[in-house]
Simulated scan of single mutants.
Amino acid sequence: MKTTGTLPPEGSAAALDGGHALPVRQWPITLVLAVAVFGLAITFAGGFKVGLLTVGASLLLGAVLRLVLPEVGMLAVRSRFTDVTVLSVLGAVIVLLTLVAQPDPWLQLPLLDNIGQLIGRQRH
């Protein structure tokens, strides 16, 4: 079965006109991917938490760009609401998990300590 008549998502037109090179026309997704790759490079170089915070920040940056810009090119995948929600949740989860990662978490959440104790009790 062939799908016909599908429309592109709202805001999926290129951010700049055709007179510019492709990466420049698609600067929102290029920027988000560049920040994410930079974060991965930091992570692989040994900066685990800083690198993953940068990756999470790149997703949050994508959410902000999708929310405020009228045209974002390939950064638009679904509706504006869905794109912003998914990017925000994924970015926030990566940032939160990075902040509570062991050893020496930068953020202490007593709820997570209690969950860890409950899991430890169930194993014995």
Rank of each mutant, 00 (worst) to 15 (best):
Lys2Pro: 03
Thr3Glu: 03
Thr3Lys: 05
Thr4Asn: 14
Thr6Phe: 10
Pro8Asn: 07
Pro8His: 09
Glu10Thr: 10
Glu10Lys: 12
Ser12Trp: 10
Ala13Gln: 15
Ala14Leu: 14
Ala15Lys: 03
Ala15Trp: 02
Ala15Phe: 07
Leu16Ser: 10
Asp17Asn: 14
Gly19Phe: 04
Gly19Asp: 09
His20Pro: 02
Ala21Thr: 12
Leu22Phe: 14
Leu22Ile: 12
Leu22Pro: 13
Leu22Trp: 13
Pro23Tyr: 10
Pro23Val: 09
Pro23Cys: 12
Pro23Lys: 11
Pro23Phe: 05
Val24Ile: 13
Arg25Met: 11
Gln26Thr: 05
Trp27Ser: 08
Ile29Cys: 08
Ile29Met: 13
Thr30Gly: 07
Thr30Cys: 02
Leu31Val: 12
Leu31Gly: 09
Val32Met: 15
Val32Gln: 00
Ala34Glu: 05
Val35Cys: 06
Ala36Val: 11
Ala36Lys: 01
Gly39Lys: 05
Leu40Thr: 01
Leu40Trp: 07
Ala41Leu: 15
Ala41Thr: 08
Ala41Arg: 07
Ile42Gln: 15
Thr43Phe: 08
Thr43Arg: 13
Thr43Lys: 09
Thr43Cys: 05
Phe44Thr: 11
Ala45Cys: 10
Ala45Asn: 12
Gly46Ala: 00
Gly46Cys: 12
Leu52Arg: 13
Leu52Gly: 02
Thr54Val: 14
Val55Gly: 06
Val55Asp: 00
Ala57Trp: 04
Ala57Pro: 04
Ser58Asn: 06
Leu60Pro: 01
Leu60Trp: 04
Leu61Thr: 12
Leu61Met: 08
Gly62Val: 02
Gly62Cys: 03
Ala63Ser: 05
Val64Pro: 08
Leu65Lys: 11
Leu65Asp: 00
Arg66Asn: 05
Arg66His: 04
Val68Ala: 12
Val68Gly: 01
Val68Ser: 04
Pro70Ile: 11
Gly73Thr: 07
Met74Cys: 01
Met74Asp: 13
Ala76Glu: 07
Ala76Tyr: 06
Ala76Ser: 12
Arg78Met: 09
Ser79Glu: 00
Ser79Lys: 06
Phe81Thr: 15
Phe81Gly: 07
Phe81Lys: 14
Phe81Pro: 02
Thr82Asn: 02
Thr82Ala: 08
Val86Met: 09
Val86Leu: 08
Val89Leu: 13
Val89Ala: 05
Val89Lys: 01
Gly91Leu: 03
Ala92Asp: 00
Val93Leu: 15
Ile94Arg: 01
Val95Lys: 04
Leu97Lys: 01
Leu99Asn: 02
Val100Trp: 01
Val100Arg: 07
Val100Thr: 14
Ala101Arg: 07
Gln102Asp: 12
Pro103Asn: 04
Pro103Gly: 09
Asp104Tyr: 05
Asp104Pro: 02
Pro105Ser: 03
Leu107Phe: 05
Leu107Arg: 01
Leu107Gly: 00
Gln108Gly: 03
Leu111Trp: 07
Asp113Gly: 08
Asp113Asn: 11
Asp113Met: 00
Asn114Ala: 14
Ile115Trp: 08
Ile115Met: 11
Gly116Trp: 06
Gln117Trp: 04
Leu118Ile: 06
Leu118Gln: 14
Leu118Val: 09
Ile119Asn: 02
Ile119Gln: 08
Gly120Trp: 05
Gly120Gln: 15
Arg121Gly: 04
Gln122Ser: 14
Gln122Lys: 15
Arg123Glu: 03
His124Tyr: 12
His124Phe: 12
